[in-house]
Design a protein around this nucleic acid. Structure first.
Lengths: 212, 212
DNA sequence: AAAATAATGTCAATTCATTGACATTCCCTT
DNA sequence: AAGGGAATGTCAATGAATTGACATTATTTT
C-alpha cells in the first residue's frame, strides 16, 4: 500500500462506493466496469478509476472489477475488517437512539457501554447494558479496550469529556456535540453537526426559491 | 444580492461561522476582524473574507465586522429568518429522538407532526403530538404548509416515500435513510448518512495506526 | 483637519480536485 | 496460439478552491 496521504475528498466517497458495491454483491452481480458503476452512481467513470487507484487499483484491464473483491478491499481500507469497541457518552434521546439502533454491529462496531452524569439513570438498562456513571468512564475505556467514544452530550460538557477520553487513550471520537473538539493528532474526530446539516438544507431551499 | 451560484464548499462553512458568531455575540463581543476570527476558528483570514464576499461583504475597512450584524446576515442567508414547518417520517428510535430533541425550535424549525406505518404506534404521543398513519401524510403536507420532511425510515421504504412527498409538494428532505434519493431539481435533499460518517472515522483511525 | 493605522475587498498565484484522453494490458473468442 | 476487443491505469488538461498580496477605504489619533 502506498504511503502518501489520501485526500479527504476521496475518503468521503469510499463509504458510498462500499454501499453500492454491497448492494451489487447482494444482487449477485459478479463483475462491473467503471462505466457501469458510473451510470448507477452518477459520478464520472474517470473519478471512480482515479479514486480506486489511490490504493493501487483493484481492477483487471479489459475485464473490469470483481464486485466482491472490490467490496472486500474497500471494506479493509475503511477499517471494517476488524471490530471496534465503542461506548456512548450521554444517555439522552440521541444516545439511546444510537444505542438501540446499532445496525452498526453488523459492521463490527461493538456497543460496550453507555454513560451519563444523571444518577437517576444509573442502572437503567439499554440493550441489556446498564447506564454507568461518568466517573467510571476512563477506567472502563482502559480496561475494555475501547477504541471509539460517541459523544451525545451538551456542547458545554463535550470539550472537557473529550479531554478525559483522550487522556484515557481513546482512538476516535464520533462527535454529535455542537462544538469543535481540540484533540492531539493521534486521536481522530468525526463530527456530526446535525444543525449545520439542517441549515445547509434551508439555505438550499431558500436559495432555490429566491431564484437561481 | 448576487445571482451567480455559490459553491457548496462555501455553504458548508456558513453554519460554522454562524455558530462562532453566535457565541461571540453571547459573550458580548461587538466587533471582530477576519484575523481574529481566523485565530479562533483555525481557518485562514483570507478564506473568511473570500467567503463573506460571495454575498457582497459585510465588513467595514479599517474596522472589521460587527458581530451582531454579521450574525444576522448569515442567518438570513441560511434561511433562518423565517420559520420552517417540518414533519418526521418514521417514529423509530431516531425519529423519536429528533422529535424530542428539537433544540431546532429555537431556530424556527417547527415540529408539526410525526408519521409511522406501524398501527401499534398510532395515537401514541410524542411531545403532545400523536403519531399518525402514513396514509395521512400527503394531505397533512398540503394542508399544513410543510416545507421539510425528515426521513428516519428504512432505506427500503425511503425512495417510495420521498416520491410521495415530492408529489405532495415538499420543498426539502432531510434524509437519514441510507440510500440516495432521486428528486426533481426544485426539491432539496440533505443527506445524513451516519454509517458513512462512522466509516470515515474508522478509516482515519486505521490510517493513522498504519502509519502516515 | 490631516496623517497614520488598520483591516476590508479583490485580484493574482498557487494548490488541489476532477475530467478527459489514450496507451497498455488482460481477457475472450476463434 | 494468436488476434481483436474491452476496460483499466495513468498522464495531461482543465476547472475549482484556497491562499497570498496589496491597493483601497474607513477609522482613529494627533
Amino acid at each position: 500500500m502506498d504511503n502518501r496521504e489520501i485526500s479527504q475528498a476521496v475518503i468521503g466517497r469510499l463509504p458510498r462506493y462500499f454501499r453500492y458495491l454491497g448492494e451489487l454483491k447482494d444482487e449477485g452481480i459478479e463483475r462491473i466496469s467503471s462505466q457501469e458503476l458510473s451510470d448507477i452512481m452518477k459520478v464520472t467513470a474517470s473519478q471512480i478509476r482515479q479514486d480506486f487507484n489511490n490504493f493501487g487499483g483493484f481492477g483487471q484491464q479489459g475485464y473490469g472489477y470483481k464486485v466482491e473483491y472490490l467490496y472486500e478491499e474497500i471494506g479493509k481500507i475503511l477499517g471494517l475488517n476488524r471490530s471496534h469497541n465503542l461506548i456512548i457518552i450521554g444517555a439522552g434521546n440521541l444516545g439511546q437512539a444510537l444505542a438501540n439502533y446499532m445496525n452498526f454491529e453488523r459492521r463490527g462496531f461493538l456497543f460496550k457501554g453507555i454513560f451519563d452524569k444523571n444518577p437517576a439513570l444509573y442502572g437503567r438498562k439499554i440493550r441489556s447494558m446498564e447506564i454507568r456513571p461518568m466517573e467510571e468512564m476512563e477506567d472502563f475505556v482502559r480496561k475494555n479496550g475501547i477504541d471509539i467514544a460517541v459523544l451525545t452530550i451538551p456542547k458545554t460538557e463535550a470539550v472537557a469529556v473529550a479531554e478525559r477520553l483522550v487522556e484515557a487513550g481513546i482512538r476516535g471520537i464520533w462527535n454529535f456535540a455542537h462544538v469543535d473538539l481540540n484533540v492531539p493528532r493521534d486521536v481522530q474526530v468525526e463530527n456530526v453537526h446535525l444543525s449545520d446539516s439542517l441549515m445547509k438544507l434551508t439555505y438550499n431551499i431558500s436559495s432555490f426559491e429566491n431564484g437561481i
